[in-house]
Amino acid sequence: MVAIRIDELTKQFEAFTALAKLSLEVEQEEFVTLLGPSGCGKTTLLKLISGFLDPTEGTIHINGKDVTRTPPEARDTALCFQSYALFPHLTVRENLEFGPRQKRISAHDRKARVDDVAEKLSLHAQMDKLPNQLSGGQQQRVSLGRALVMRPSVILFDEPLSNLDAKLRDQVRIEIRRIQKEYGLTAIYVTHDQNEALAMSDRVVVLNGGRVEQIDTPEALYHAPKTRFVADFIGDANVFSGTVQGEVQPGLWRVETAMGTYDVATSTPPKEKDVDLCWRPESAVLGDAGHTGKVINRAFQGHFTDLMIETKGVSYRVQSRATSAQEGDTVNISIPPEQLILLERTA
């Protein structure tokens, strides 16, 4: 069942279009991440879903109900703020109880809900403390708890990990995902960190300049990016412009690039002659076959070695697990046809 349906949503700030005709459906209990660089419209979209902004055009339905013009206090969404936004003069318990109090939930139910959340987030020892007596991670958990006690249809996260240090970030990330599954929540999560998006999400919406670049599972985004932007933004990628020569075998297309000719295995034939060709640095095979290139930089990274290689004046990146190539060496590189990805040319 669809939890959130967004149709042709547009938001303009005077002349600036923050979001252009965005459509998205989020399933019940799905974890969807909005990913993109700053200014891509991801926070605008979150604010539109939570009700803090009114769309210029388009509609939003939550559980089949049109909430496009419903104010945030009447929406069945709960937002976890980037800065936590805990009420500083209230204790942890009072912070957690604030929402249920507003909804006039009976004292008995309120206590049950708060105790349940405190249990799940191990906040019991902190209940009578003030927010400024807590660590960043604990504040983050209170903020999550305050959203959870609302038992919302949709829980929204606005870069919740950006104020935590790297080690804590992994821990809280796992915790957020666990809680989301335990409560069976539909979640929308905003981040600019691709690792976070890949690790947590059922599906990722990649946004760029107020438009959707691609909506897909993390695996599909990595292995089959559709545009040059997605290929670049998710992981490392080598992208070259090329021209399609023709189908050499069924499902195998020959593409001419500045570096040489490649055969690409693809089930969907290219629509146009001019394409972008993309491959991941780790899919190159260093060996006897393929193009020759000169190693211009070598960086040992532990479980792999990062090489910058130049062929016919074009430089690209290769990651290899076992190579003894040194700077200045000439190597042979081949890329398996199924590891090559054809991208749509975008204007």
Binding site: S50, F52, P71, P72, E73, A74, T77, A78, L79, F81, S83, A85, L86, F87, P88, H89, L90, F98, G99, Q102, K103, R146, M150
Partner: peptide, 24 residues
């Protein structure tokens, strides 16, 4: 502003928002 927004998001009326976000 985020205290006002948080109160609103948690369903607070105008008066409750004033008490929890403005007054302190």
């Amino acid at each position: 502003q985020e205290h006002i927004d948080a109160a609103r998001d948690l369903g607070a009326s105008h008066w409750a928002r004033f008490r929890v976000a403005y007054l302190p």
